[in-house]
């Protein structure tokens, strides 16, 4: 997208890395073990190009999606996607108990809401802190569906031509659990986000 410079993307990556660090800290307190969450890169993708292939969602199984609606200087729909298998594995690790997948499934809905909520809040709150604005949010929703269905819904609800995409790697150190989550942010106004980024970068631009 033309509006976004490399410096903008670099700033967003740094913002979300800080969010990931906060999320990892919260999760490690729950798990009692080191949790690593990293954000390798941030992409801006044309909404029309959002599909399971461009997002590397090649698993055909069911996906879980935690979504939250954020409002503030711009409105944003944030969505966190993961395969249901991985989700159950992460939850069972977090619960630290030996449970069958069927038993775990009883807790899936709520636990995934919590896991997603921790990551989404951490990412969005670090954005709000660093760019210096205030965000409000709805409580998280959780849906289970195929990747196509979830993405279709996202595109349908979004009026914006561009979506911010982050691939997030999550690992619980000692238990050797690793997962890849996809974080999608579709905002009512990327222009407003760019404006805030410019304000943030403004003070340091001349040094550049």
């Amino acid at each position: 997208m033309r509006q976004f410079s490399e410096l903008h993307l670099d700033a967003l990556t740094e913002i979300f890395s800080i969010g990931a660090g906060r999320a990892a800290l919260s999760l490690s307190e729950i798990v009692g073990d080191e949790v690593r969450i990293s954000v390798p890169s941030v992409q801006i993708i044309n909404a029309e190009d959002i599909n399971p292939v461009t997002l590397s969602l090649t698993d055909t199984g069911r996906f879980g999606a935690v979504s939250q609606h954020f409002s503030g200087p711009f409105n944003a729909e944030a969505l966190l996607l993961f395969t249901e298998d991985q989700a159950l594995k992460i939850i069972s690790d977090m619960m630290g108990s030996q449970m069958s997948n069927e038993e775990l499934a009883e807790f899936e809905h709520e636990a995934m809401c919590e896991l997603g909520n921790i990551i989404l809040n951490a990412c969005l709150s670090s954005m709000a802190d660093i760019l210096n604005f205030v965000l409000e949010s709805s409580l998280p929703d959780y849906t289970v569906a195929s990747a196509e269905e979830i993405l279709h819904r996202l595109k349908k609800d979004s009026s914006q031509p561009y979506v911010l995409v982050l691939h997030i790697d999550l690992a619980i150190e000692k238990r050797h659990t690793a997962g890849n989550l996809v974080f999608l942010l579709s905002t009512s106004s990327l222009t407003n986000l760019v404006t805030h980024l410019d304000q943030f970068l403004g003070n340091i631009h001349e040094q550049n």
Partner: peptide, 25 residues
Amino acid sequence: SPAFLTALNSTLTHRLPVVLSTALH
């Protein structure tokens, strides 16, 4: 539980909603 206090504190500072699930707490 400390997790509850952390969550409450986080809601009050960041003004974002938090959920605590039965599964994890």
